[in-house]
């Protein structure tokens, strides 16, 4: 079945904001994306960590104490959910979040400057290295933030907040000029 992004009608491709040569940053919606929340059962933290390390074609992101988001761009949401449910039986609770969260990629030389307007997290490389995830708030919206590259991050928010969050994110990006891809 064809999935429609919650931001389809607002995340229009093109160049927006200040016109000062190269855009300061790029924004794109990561869609479709299979997402499952995984929470360790009592006393299973270590077993879960080891089990997650054996998974293939997925990204495992920290999402709180003994909690992880497992994401995949190649597996369908059903396939991912069933695989995790089977492999993590009695180790963790698994919930499909593929339709529950919207993931936005932000990259470019001004990406960090835009994020710094919203989050109190120290985004310097030493404090927040590539691969690290954090839970924070931006514009009163709960955000799961991951650094995926030196100047590249992904932001994930509840679907219901995504349009409002997009409006905030683009208005904060406007001064640098941004490209939606």
């Amino acid at each position: 079945m064809l999935r429609t992004s919650a931001l389809q009608s607002v995340a229009i491709q093109g160049r927006f904001g200040a016109d000062k040569g190269q855009p300061g940053l790029m924004l794109s919606v990561v869609h479709p994306l299979a997402i499952a929340m995984v929470i360790a059962r009592k006393g299973k933290s270590k077993v879960l960590k080891d089990a997650l390390a054996t998974l293939k074609s997925v990204n495992v992101l920290w999402a709180g104490p003994d909690q992880y988001y497992v994401q995949s761009t190649v597996k369908s949401e059903t396939a991912l959910y069933i695989e995790l449910k089977t492999k993590l039986a009695n180790i963790a609770s698994v919930t499909d979040q593929s339709h529950g969260r919207v993931t936005i990629r932000i990259s470019g030389p001004k990406a960090r400057a835009v994020l710094a307007k919203g989050t109190p997290i120290d985004l310097y490389t030493e404090e927040f290295p590539v691969g690290k995830s954090a839970l924070t708030q931006m514009a009163h919206v709960g955000v799961h933030l991951t650094r995926t590259g030196n100047d590249e991050f992904t932001l994930s928010v509840f679907r219901g907040f995504s349009e409002s969050f997009w409006e905030w994110l683009t208005s904060q990006s406007a001064e640098f000029g941004y490209q939606v891809g």
Partner: peptide, 11 residues
């Protein structure tokens, strides 16, 4: 202990 130092507004 899970997230590092954060401002009181998050609590």
């Amino acid at each position: 202990p899970h997230c590092g130092t954060r401002p009181v507004e998050e609590f």
